[in-house]
Amino acid sequence: MIRTVPVALGDRSYEVRIGPGLIARAGDEIAPLLSRPRVAILTDERVASLHLPALTAALDRAGIASSALALPAGEATKSWDHLGRAVEWLLAERIERRDIVIALGGGVIGDLAGFAAAILRRGVRFVQLPTTLLAQVDSSVGGKTGINSPQGKNLIGAFHQPSLVLADIDVLATLPDRDFRAGYGEIVKYGLLGDAGFFTWLEENGPRLRQDRDALIHAVAHSVAMKAAIVARDETEQGDRALLNLGHTFGHALESATGYSDRLLHGEGVAIGCALAFDLSARLGLCPQEDPSRVGAHLGAMGMPARLSDVPGDLPDDAGLIALMGQDKKVVDGRLRLILARGIGQAFVASDIDPAAIAATLSQAR
């Protein structure tokens, strides 16, 4: 069963296709987009070993020639050096403006390949084939592309929408459990920010998503539909789209503090960030006191981190973490903007939060 979610952006609209067997069908899915039967694939070394042969075989069956560049796996690949390597390779492959670049991988490859496509010849089309749960429900949809800086995460980039997203549920079977759970951090975010009923469904069904394909397809499609609706209203994050950053200001600071390493995966940082956002909201009297406990209990039931003490190794002190939060893209006129909540499913953008309340929340979470 293939679920199709449209992303309505006028003449840049596209579809997100979700279901089993989509890599095996990729040639037929992509062929209508091509002006000539040729594509370039950007991937990483781990994903290439698992899924690149199936993709190139599918393209071959559709009469589409392909070449591929496999970059190192990991968050550190979202850098100037690897972006430059990717762009120079695409130029050497003589990829033209009417051609298609395929991003085969998780959020790192999707972000980097999308940014490379955005700046190559002032804009080349690209297709997302996300291979992680996190990428399927979040980073492959909406056109945010970019790389990291030593100053912070995703500070260099562009909005560049894909022409198609193919989310093959079958490839998630190859994910390690920790990576699957990290992707779940973005799924639970959608319930917390705007759909209390979905959060209740996740409380009941979340622990069996790995074993129940129909439930997994529903969770991915529902998350994508929520994101697509928000992106259609606010593509470049002037208003509603900022809600999608629930948990991310805290999470990005923690990722920076841990050196974008395996100490903390992005989805784990988001999960801790969501818990902190609800802790802070309750501390400020914005949401019911029982909501943070409910959020923490569900994250615990999913085997996910929810507190700073769940991060291995030392972290900066409260002032140090708040300073890292100050580098976030959501800072406006020097003021930190956080996504807080009036309850589960009721997130909103908040400015001018008392730093002392943030520090107290961080201290409690240690």
Score class of each variant (00 low, 15 high):
R12P: 01
R12M: 03
S13R: 01
R17I: 02
R17W: 00
G19S: 04
L33Q: 04
L34P: 00
S35W: 11
E45G: 07
P53Y: 01
A54I: 03
T56D: 13
L59M: 13
R61C: 06
A68G: 11
A70Q: 07
A70G: 12
E88T: 10
E88V: 07
L90W: 02
E93M: 12
E93T: 11
E93D: 15
R94Y: 11
D99Q: 09
V101M: 14
I109M: 10
G110F: 09
L112W: 12
A113Q: 07
G114W: 08
A116L: 03
A117I: 11
V127Q: 14
V127A: 12
L129H: 01
P130M: 05
P130F: 06
T131R: 11
L133A: 01
A135S: 15
D138R: 08
S139W: 12
V141T: 05
G143Y: 04
L155N: 11
Q161F: 10
P162Y: 01
S163N: 07
L164H: 09
A167S: 08
A167C: 03
I169M: 02
D170W: 06
D170R: 06
R178I: 05
D179E: 15
F180R: 05
F180Q: 05
F180M: 06
F180A: 03
E186L: 10
L192E: 14
G194T: 02
E203P: 08
P207M: 09
P207C: 11
R208T: 13
R210W: 02
D214C: 08
S223M: 00
A228T: 04
A228Q: 01
A229Y: 00
A229P: 03
E235T: 11
E237Q: 10
D240C: 00
R241N: 10
A242D: 13
L243W: 09
L246A: 10
A253E: 11
S256L: 11
A257G: 08
A257M: 08
T258K: 02
D262L: 10
R263W: 00
V270R: 05
G273Y: 13
C274N: 15
L286R: 12
H298P: 07
L299G: 09
G303Q: 02
M304C: 12
D310W: 05
G313E: 11
G313Y: 11
L315S: 10
G320R: 09
A323E: 14
M325N: 07
Q327A: 15
G334T: 12
R342D: 14
G343F: 10
G345I: 08
D354R: 10
I358D: 01
L362C: 09
L362M: 11
Q364E: 15
